[in-house]
Amino acid sequence: MSRKLRLGLYALLCVLCVPFVFPTWWMVTSSVKPISDIFAFPPALVPSRFDFSTYGRVFELQPFGQQYLNSLYIAAVVTAGTMAVAAMAGYAFARIRFPGQNVLFLVVLVGLLIPSEVTIVPLFQMFHTAGLTDTHWPLILVPILGAPSVLATFIMRQFFITLPGELEEAARVDGLGRFGTFFRVALPLSRSALGAVAIFTFLHSWNLYLEPIVFLSTPSKFTLPQALTQFVDAYGSPLWNVQLSAATMTALPILVVFVLAQRQFIEGLAHTGLKG
């Protein structure tokens, strides 16, 4: 590659990444700006003075630590559960022939097509009658078994379909049954697709907004996106710098984990990748 082209590519990348980086930068720096700086024009790239007191207020106004744990554990359980459900269903739909397969797959696919706004009222009624509102159960059960997991199943099916057919034959020669083939051969091969599913699922659960608002009513049970909207004064006006501090705290650790684990995240995904 010529030097000129190389420089051009770097310049292009640098310009392109501005809208990706600037908002996060603004969020992090504004969280320690005095409130008048937040409204300054042109926006200050670096705070005129640093004010970390807002970070303390985040914890005073809300049981923020508890809410953080809630979000983390719900996302973890949902991710693990979805990976299991989706891997099984995806494998079966891709590699096993059974009567009604196509119809059942279509039935499952319906879940892919439903925005959560559509079914929230009936779901709320069902969980309410089961006495499970204001618990984390709806936020765990619905994503693992309901509409959100369908995307995961779909990804897994698309992956398993690309595995060569000799795989099963070889496994059978080795004396493995269907389950054995699934657990010992197919599943280990699908690490990358499972990685993609894990990222998708974790982020989906982590970002869930409408459902927690509808299902949860006790602050100590809240999840983070819901908590973010609670940093307001008694009349509903946002406490901007506190809100931005809380937002920063929800984003930064994930960003750091991602940067550290990015090899596993993306490269692992890429090398054994969802092959074309």
Partner: peptide
């Protein structure tokens, strides 16, 4: 406490859901 932004909406959803 229900977030002020969505207060009436959330309240009505709870009522619609029987809660």
């Amino acid at each position: 406490p229900i977030p002020f932004e969505n207060y009436t909406t959330t309240l009505t959803t709870q009522i619609a859901g029987g809660n």
